Computed example of a mutant assay.
Amino acid sequence: MERREVFKALETWGIRPEKVRRVRGVFKVWTDREIYCLKPVKDSKKRLLFFDSVIRYVKSRGFQVLASYIHTPEGEPFGNYDGQNLILTPWIEGKEIRYRSIKEMIGAAKVLAEFHKAAEGYKPEPGIKVKDKLGKWPEKLARRVGDIEFYIELAEKEGSDFDWYFLKNADRILKDTKEAFIALRDSVYYKKVEESRNLTQICHGDPARRNFLIDKKGQIHLIDYDSMKLDLPITDLWRLLRRTLNRDQWDIDVIRRILDGYTEVRPLDQEDYQLLAIFLTFPEKVWRILRKYYEKRGRDGWSYKRLFRKLRKFLAQQENRARFLSEFKMIYCEE
Rank of each mutant, 00 (worst) to 15 (best):
E295P: 05
L280T: 11
R256W: 02
L268W: 10
F308W: 06
Y262I: 14
Q274A: 05
Y262N: 13
L280N: 06
L307E: 12
R256S: 14
R257S: 13
A277Q: 09
D251P: 09
L280I: 12
W287D: 15
K296I: 00
K310C: 01
D251K: 05
G261V: 03
Y273S: 10
D269R: 09
W250L: 02
V286T: 13
F308V: 03
R309F: 01
A277E: 10
R297N: 10
D269K: 09
F282L: 08
F279D: 09
V286K: 12
Y294D: 14
W250V: 01
K285F: 11
R266I: 01
L280K: 07
R257P: 02
F282Q: 13
R299T: 15
D272Y: 11
Q270T: 10
K296L: 11
I252H: 06
T281Q: 13
R256C: 08
E284N: 10
F308C: 00
I289T: 15
D269T: 12
Y273R: 13
F282E: 09
D260A: 15
K305D: 12
D251I: 02
R256F: 01
D251S: 11
A277G: 14
I258W: 14
L276E: 13
Y262H: 13
E271P: 04
P267R: 15
E284W: 03
I252D: 09
I258Y: 14
L290Q: 06
T281Y: 04
K310S: 13
R256Y: 03
R257V: 02
K292D: 14
R266F: 11
L275S: 01
Y294I: 05
I289Y: 12
Y293R: 07
R297I: 05
V265C: 07
D251L: 03
E284H: 06
R299I: 03
P283L: 00
L268Q: 09
I278G: 01
R297S: 10
I289A: 05
P267V: 03
D260Q: 14
F279Q: 12
V265W: 08
I289N: 10
Q274M: 06
V265D: 07
P267I: 03
D269I: 11
W287H: 14
L280E: 10
V265R: 15
E295K: 13
K296D: 15
F282S: 14
Y262C: 07
R309Y: 00
L280D: 01
E271S: 15
L259V: 11
V265L: 06
Y304A: 03
R257L: 08
Y293F: 15
L259H: 11
L290A: 03
L290F: 09
F308N: 03
Y304V: 04
F279M: 13
Y293H: 14
D253T: 12
D272F: 08
I255Y: 02
D251C: 04
S303E: 09
I255E: 12
I258V: 14
E264M: 07
Y294M: 06
L259K: 12
V265A: 07
P283T: 02
W287L: 10
E264L: 08
F279T: 06
L275W: 00
L307M: 10
G301W: 10
D269N: 15
L290K: 09
L280S: 05
L290D: 05
Q270W: 06
